[in-house]
Nucleic acid binder design. Structure first.
Length: 274
DNA sequence: TGAGATGTTCACAT
DNA sequence: TATGTGAACATCTC
């Protein structure tokens, strides 16, 4: 379940392995992976070179040398893997990029939710609507307290759901939303507009620090996430709330409970998250 | 055996 | 406009 830290980890892996190697062939084994015409995709990508790999929120942007960009979203279980030239497609392999150096990059997706789309470089926001409306990246410079607090005040939504909305800020998913709320001692059901400025400041710092820390840990391996070279992350061992239902809160020892907020499983401490 | 849970985004309903 | 719900899928658990 790639969230921002996992996508960033994959981005770094792909940057290294695509690294100016020509893509000599593309195989698409699941046509619905692609938004747009599959033939057009294959034709444009074949013979091109990935100059660099960018990221915006949970989207990967593979910059080709022919003024095209592959916009890739892994959704739930999408996964890139580096393989040698003899590797055969697996049950859920949806696309294969064969590189000039003989290696292959597989895109696998057990649940088939992930999507790829070819767009003209620079036209991403015109062609991918969620990129056009996406909120700021969660960094010190781009996620300001003034923005965060003002935007929180405008919404009555439960804070958990608010944090998951990529239009408010980019990159948080279910795992890290639970984590930053636990760290900030905020109840996931609290309406966004009921968070005061001091709490917003704390929330902001926790979001920025937690995501940076998770990237440093190579992401969380909870269900299927593995980086592009096949290594699991370590972040799952550092989580305080997500996946710890029934276990004692590390702060006060009370039992963590699981509820549903915005249709998503949400684990929190009812004693210290107010 | 089969219902329910898993989690991201979009389309649609209210 | 803002918010909520179900669908797109496959797999695992109870």
């Amino acid at each position: 379940m790639p969230e921002l830290p996992e996508v960033e980890t994959v981005r770094r892996g792909l940057s290294k392995y695509f690294a100016n190697e020509k893509i000599v062939a593309v195989q698409v084994l699941y046509r619905k992976l692609l938004l747009g015409d599959p033939e057009e995709f294959i034709q444009q990508v074949t013979g091109s070179t990935v100059r660099e790999v960018d990221r915006r929120g949970k989207f990967l942007l593979l910059r080709l040398n022919n003024r095209q960009t592959i916009v890739s979203h892994m959704r739930m279980e999408g996964r890139y893997a580096i393989e040698d030239g003899s590797a055969q497609p697996r049950k859920h392999t949806e696309a294969i990029f064969k590189l000039a150096n003989g290696s292959q990059i597989f895109y696998d997706d057990t649940r088939k939710f992930g999507k790829m789309q070819l767009v003209v470089t620079g036209q991403e926001t015109e062609e991918v609507r969620s990129l056009a409306t996406m909120g700021p990246e969660p960094t010190e410079a781009t996620l300001t307290l003034d923005y965060l607090f003002a935007r929180l005040q405008k919404s009555k939504k439960a804070i958990k759901g608010w944090l998951l909305d990529q239009n408010n800020l980019a990159g948080l998913g279910n795992i890290y939303a639970d984590e930053v709320l636990w760290m900030s001692k905020i109840n996931p059901l609290r309406p966004a507009c009921r968070i005061n400025r001091e709490e917003a400041e704390l929330l902001r710092e926790n979001i920025i620090q937690e995501l940076a820390f998770a990237i440093d840990q190579g992401g969380s391996t909870v269900h299927s996430f593995i980086d592009a070279s096949g290594h699991a992350g370590h972040m799952q061992d550092k989580l305080h709330a997500y996946g710890r239902v029934g276990q004692p809160c590390e702060r006060d020892g009370y039992e963590l409970v699981k509820i549903k907020v915005a249709q998503r499983g949400t684990t929190y401490c009812p004693h210290c998250q107010k």
